[in-house]
Design a protein around this nucleic acid. Sequence first.
DNA 1: GGGTCACCAGTTTTT
DNA 2: CTGGTGACCC
Length: 681
Amino acid sequence: MFDLNRLNPQQREAVTHTDGPLLLLAGAGSGKTRVITCRIVYLLQQCGVPAEQLLAVTFTNKAAREMRARVEEMVGRRAAKGMVIATFHALCVRLLKSHIERLGYKKNFSIYPAADQQRLIRDLLREEVADAGANDAEQVLWRISEAKNRLLTADNYQANSRDPLSCLVALVYPRYQKALKAFNAVDFDDLLLLGVHLLERHPELLQHYQQQFRYQMVDEYQDTNPVQYRLLKLLAGGHGNLCVVGDDDQSIYAWRGADIANILDFEKDFPGTRMIKLEQNYRSSGQILSAANAVIQHNRKRRDKALWTTAGEGSPVEYLLAEDDEDEARLVMERIHVERFRRQLNYGDFAVLYRTNSQSRAFEEQLRYENIPYVLIGGQQFFDRKEVKDVIAYLRVLVNPLDEVNLLRILNYPKRGIGETSVDKIIRYSADRSIALWSVLKEVSQVPELNERTSEAVNGFVGLLERYRKRFQQPLYLVETLRALLAELKLAEEIYRQEKDLTAARRRIENQDQVSNAMSAYLDREPQPSLAGFLEKVSLLDDERPGRNDKEKKLAADAVTLMSLHSSKGLEFPVVFLVGMEEGYLPHKKTIDETFDVDEERRLCYVGMTRAEKQLMLLGARQRRKYGKLEQREPSRFLSEIPETLLLRNKSGGTEQSTAEQQEQSASQFFSGISQLLEDS
DNA sequence: GGGTCACCAGTTTTT
DNA sequence: CTGGTGACCC
């Protein structure tokens, strides 16, 4: 149970407003998660809504997990059972698992991650343009994704004759979609788009889900794109019991299709909306909030609101101007030492936030030099690593033999004597006759021009897969079967052969073992496990891989956090260093040049500032090494948007370089003084 | 099939 | 300056 009286008036109103559309404008640190979970508990306990009728949608698995955990904490596991808390993508996978056959796919469809998509597009592109590179594929893919996010199907895509890339897209998009279907595969954007198609084309399904999910909630609503919006509009149609929570000031994903208009125009889209603003902040001290408010108020198109706190003024926001990037990192280290001692803090209480990941380098070097533990968030994802993808590719083909991208990936890996020319012949045979590649492999003796040895190798490969497909039917022995497969494939030996660096080789083998560990964790958690189920979790990145629980990990490691401003959304730290406060970085030059969207950069700055609880330090450099040459830098315009009274400008960093400069400065003052004297006399 | 070299581009990221 | 890609050669 929970006590309504422990909520502030706005929070209480949000929790008890149950029916009809509700827009919650939840400022940074306003206790948003608490309100959502309390509202769920209120619906369950006070209104007696059955758990199965509750739907909560988030953007990340982490958010979904946390929300479920907090609800379970309050009402118990049993009472929360049946409630659907999922990401947009996971929700759509659920819909598609049951009904995708109505759209012409099979139940065991594969979900293609970006790398697989790109590979497929690159191959298709090469059929059109001989010298198409990986870069072109990436751009085409980007456009296709953009189109899908805007509900534009391959049939409806219109090329713009003035835009050569769009012409290429118009050519490749339909072929790409056809290939995916032939491979019984969908990409991430399809999950949402097909989900929408399903509901649009099958009114009885739509009605079923509208009735099932009688109360719906969406977190981070400012990040929704047009497909997601359509999906919500469909699902909430009828009863309109949709509660969206978000903050237009924290909309920082326009570049991947998020439409801020969704939150700005919510009342128009859902007549009868009740709007509640949560402006009381429970995170940051007064001066930090005032400075952040001052910056964000320079945005024109926004819901008027301002965060306030009863926590007191706290420490002033500081601005430290460093000489160069190295000096910037040194200044941060210096302050970490000072504040850690002064405030009795741990390393884990500090975060360094930057606009681009490449900015992390100087800080990593300095932290290593000073022997300070740190965690770097971002960078290569576990399931993006080649050796991991190899293992996953086997599993995908075992579940869905039509998955050609992955079939080709493993056909001759590890090497089993099926060379490139043989593969080409097999592919041509398959394409000419429109027979699935897998079927060709099963009847490989039909393919002419293949020598005995190659045919035997193919038969061995097919036999291996069929053997393991059977073994993987036993859900209780998934891990054992996977280990046996890895052993039989001798992947470790293959890695040792390829990788000269012994440590690197061991690490890659370790990564492969982690797949079995992830599977084992999945088995522990899942009441009805299956290989397909495991792959689904992997595809949605909803995995249990070691190091996933970053909160625990961070506590154990007690390390300074380094991450991009984008990744920092939703987090908080006692002390935040917002670095690279320079024109070109924040706001980023590319954004200004290409989309002119300074407002989004300002929101990014705002997100960074509002991560800080006790102390916020803004840093920038006078000059910076970029692409090998030294560049003069200008302070960010956002700095001048903070009133002088709220910004403590800290001129001298106290490092050797700035001291040297000070000496130089006083020396020149001395000489000018002397010459003045001489002139006077 | 693997290794080397030249060339090019260089924000942000989840699912 | 880096890292990634593709062409070319052994």
